[in-house]
């Protein structure tokens, strides 16, 4: 038999170009989807507005102005909405519709697809941060610019943990189930997960539980960075532990079909 001849020239685009193309594709898909915009942009801005400008919720702001005290938590909520809820839903429906399988057969491959998704999440987060910070500044927020590296670090840690959770859900449950769970979990963590308010201000046992949740840890990390100039090491440990556990779970359990 004659051995099959393969064409000599490489047929795939360079890996960075493939990943950049996928990241841009994912970002556009999220920013163009009305429901995704609602949860990633409109919801955090509304929460920011409500907590700063109304007094439905009695806040102990530890001597900070309301906007200074609330904005870090809203940034944490924004990270959760994009890295977790939006990504879980998008990936679950892509999985159901065969998009993940189809793209995995192109030169992009599975790892390129994952890299593109993560970069897409980060790109959407940049848009969120610009919008939320713009609104917060308009409401009187005056952050320390020196806090930026710590904020970015906290954001990346939170993104890692919540993206891992998103992929774990999206790769194991039915798309409709993910839609329900991802939204419900976002609401529960927002209300009782220590994101917007410090865990110790939550009622009863929740105050002890919330600091161990990725939501509480991310909220504490953001507040630490922006209010006190340093991310608490405990929050870093909690977020890293969740990332490792959820990432390992997703790697083991994610089903492409």
């Amino acid at each position: 038999m004659s051995a099959p001849t393969l064409r000599a020239e490489p047929a795939a685009a360079p890996v960075l170009r493939r990943i950049a193309a996928q990241a841009s594709f994912e970002t556009r898909a999220i920013l163009r989807n009305g429901e995704q915009l609602l949860v990633t942009i409109v919801l955090p801005v509304l929460v920011l507005f409500a907590l700063v400008r109304t007094s439905f919720i009695d806040l102990d702001t530890h001597g900070f102005s309301r906007v200074d005290f609330v904005t870090p938590g809203v940034l944490a909520l924004a990270v959760m909405s994009t890295a977790f809820t939006s990504q879980a839903i998008a990936t679950a429906f892509d999985r159901r519709n065969g998009v993940l399988r189809l793209m995995a057969t192109t030169p992009l491959g599975r790892s390129g697809l994952l890299a593109g998704k993560v970069l897409g999440v980060l790109a959407v987060e940049v848009v969120q941060v610009v919008v939320i910070c713009g609104v917060a500044v308009a409401l009187g927020w005056r952050p320390e610019l020196g806090a930026l590296p710590a904020v970015v670090g906290a954001g990346l840690l939170g993104t890692a943990a919540f993206t891992a959770l998103a992929l774990l859900l999206a790769g194991t449950l039915r798309a409709e189930g993910v839609l329900a769970v991802a939204n419900l979990v976002l609401v529960l963590l927002t209300v009782g997960g220590g994101v917007l308010l410090p865990a110790q201000q939550l009622a009863g046992p929740l105050s002890h539980v919330a600091v161990l949740l990725p939501s509480g840890a991310l909220g504490e990390a953001m507040r630490g960075a922006l209010l006190y100039g340093a991310v608490p090491p405990f929050s870093v440990v909690v977020l890293l532990a969740w990332t490792a556990a959820l990432g390992a779970g997703a790697a083991r359990l994610f089903r492409w079909h």
């Binding site: 493939r18 193309a21 898909a29």
Partner: peptide, 28 residues
């Protein structure tokens, strides 16, 4: 090249935009 039975096409993008995106994965 693969054409899946259920299509596997993302639903939120325009037809030719999708084709251009897949094309971007190849050198030529």
């Amino acid at each position: 090249g693969v054409m899946l039975q259920d299509g596997g096409l993302p639903t939120g993008v325009r037809a030719l935009e999708l084709l251009r995106h897949v094309a971007a994965m190849y050198a030529a």
